[in-house]
Design a binder for these strands. Structure first.
Length: 103
DNA sequence: AGCGTGACAATTA
DNA sequence: ATAATTGCCACGC
């Protein structure tokens, strides 16, 4: 049914907050179909501090924040492969129950 | 009510 | 592997 009581931005932010330390999620995973949206949410929305935006990387593991982000990820123990995040290991293994739909 | 925008994604050379 | 191109959606003005 899709009852977006809140804008997608809220659910996106919620997904980012759900990223455990040492792991990362891709924009496409936060909002399949509109991966450009989460990006704009974090970019437009001022860094509140309660949102680990640095745990959000591109679909290929490349970063969007810049070196600033890379440092934070490395500090959290995220696996890096050269200049990109090793999504094979750092990507969220499973979801704690996020976009539960269908039914 | 319409247009431009964007911290993207997937595809094709 | 890199580079360029197109498509996508939802939001702000």
């Amino acid at each position: 049914m899709s009852a977006p009581s809140e804008s997608r931005a809220e659910r996106v932010l919620a997904g980012v907050r759900a990223i455990p330390e040492g792991h990362v999620r891709t924009y496409g995973d936060l909002d399949p179909g509109a991966p450009r949206f989460p990006g704009r949410v974090l970019a437009t929305h001022p860094d509140a501090g309660d949102v680990p935006w640095h745990r959000v990387v591109r679909a290929d593991g490349s970063l969007a924040g810049g070196e600033r982000q890379r440092e934070r990820l490395v500090a959290e123990g995220v696996a890096f492969r050269g200049m990109r995040v090793d999504l094979r290991l750092a990507r969220l293994p499973l979801d704690p129950g996020e976009h539960l739909e269908a039914d």
